[in-house]
Design a protein around this nucleic acid. Structure first.
Lengths: 111, 111
DNA sequence: TTGTATGTTCGATGCCTATCGAACATACTA
DNA sequence: TAGTATGTTCGATAGGCATCGAACATACAA
């Protein structure tokens, strides 16, 4: 039951964060995390890819320092990390706000 | 002679913008544009790639809606587009602010 | 017209990434 | 113990992207 690797705050890079959020699927995942104050289980995440691909995207978000990944039994729970807010003030807030605006007018699944 | 294609404001996508800014070279270019209020000539852009690669990155930034690309004679001038500010308020500002903070110790400052 | 300067495009190369199915590991359950 | 549920990892595939040199296009200058 090895724990997941999470980067330290000082190792979080702006380019990596933006690159991670540049993918529509990952941006959608982070948006869904925002709607939940605390953690969210894997089963509650709506995404149109298989579990192997989802695991890959989770690893990308985790390595970028955007989420915290916790395992409990056979299930996984993820939550937003707010270290990015401290490192890059306003970046995550404005992106999530913009994503909420644009995704509310269009389809939940993006192209 | 032929002008460059620029996307309309309504065609600018958040994912594309973030993906474009996710590349360190392009983020550096946009940062250098911020330091200049108006336009900046190609020759004044400091980047460690060849002109073919630079042209490619410029096209990416242009297609993302981040810059305006103008040709004057044999030379090119680029400037930040502020449509992104209208579409996604705070996104560009916070990113550029964060980039200026983190790159202040490494990246050269324009005169 | 010839040459020069500035970018763009093309072709090729190599790397990275998104995706899936299948196999594996782990933890719970009957 | 055997079975089930939940993710991770592996192998493979396909596509995209960054990079370069070379060829091309355009505009200006001599």
């Amino acid at each position: 039951m090895k724990a997941f690797d999470h980067p330290k705050v000082e190792d979080i890079s702006l380019s990596t964060v933006l690159s991670a959020l540049g993918d529509p699927i990952r941006l959608s995942i982070v948006t869904q995390l925002t709607l939940n104050e605390g953690e969210i289980g894997w089963g509650a995440i709506e995404v149109a890819v298989g579990k192997a691909t989802l695991s890959h995207h989770m690893k990308t978000l985790r390595n970028a320092g955007l989420i915290h990944h916790r395992k409990d039994g056979t299930r996984c729970f993820v939550a937003l990390r707010f270290d990015v807010n401290v490192l890059f003030p306003g970046v995550l807030e404005s992106i999530l706000h913009a994503a909420a605006q644009t995704s509310s007018a269009s389809a939940p699944i993006m192209t």
